[in-house]
Amino acid sequence: MSYFQYKDSPYTIRDDLGTAYRGFWSQLARPGSWWAGEQRIAIAQETRNAVECEFCVQRKAALSPYGLQGEHDGDSKLDNIATDAVHRIITDQSRITQAYIDDLAQQGLSNEAYVELSGIVVAVFSIDEFHRALGINLETFPDAEPGEPSHYRPDKAVAGIGFVPMLPPDAATGNESDLWHNEQTANVLRALTLVPDALRDWMKIGAAQYLTMEGMASMSQQEGRALNRMQIELVAGRVSAINECFY
């Protein structure tokens, strides 16, 4: 099945968007570093369940996000720990804490598995949000491919900033040499590097939705885009402000 064809879209969708989304769907179906294909699809499905979850609405309104007991909506194929992590990232991300991530690890959701889960959640959510923004139906998920996760962890990932270990700026070498060059990086790029493929996935989607890495450094208009840089940053800034993004 060929995904993201947009034959019924009322608007012309740039080819690079469909290509990026198809590429991610293909990756999503395969075994990752810490989750099998079937589990990755389950995380993706849970991302959609979280958007409609009534318990998440109640929790978002609660003074403390960690005291309220209840069950998330949707027929999750994940365990309760992973299901809750997905829902928090979608509906109450600003109140995620180091203590919560440490507690997940104690309950069996390792930092590595959490980072891969986060990468899937944000990618699926972002792709879905593009469709919702245009009033286009969401794409169906691909069928999972068989196989085991690789359990690949980059040797140089270290704890220090943020809630999980990350690659330092000088660690984009060896298997990770494609992630950035000359130590030119940023914390948001390093955020998911405990699972390098999670960063690779978001860079490909980000290059189509926002800007390429090279494009970010240039303030002139990018070829093939209808928005100039100020228009892009106005949209980016307003969305970030509503999401209470300090970063």
Binding site: Q93, G162, L192, Q209, S240
Partner: peptide, 23 residues
């Protein structure tokens, strides 16, 4: 379409930043 793509991208970025607590 470009605006939808940028908005969708930044619905994601905040969640990356906050889910792993980067400064």
């Amino acid at each position: 379409v470009d605006a939808a793509a940028v908005a969708a991208n930044f619905q994601r970025m905040v969640r990356i930043a906050d889910s792993v607590g980067i400064p």
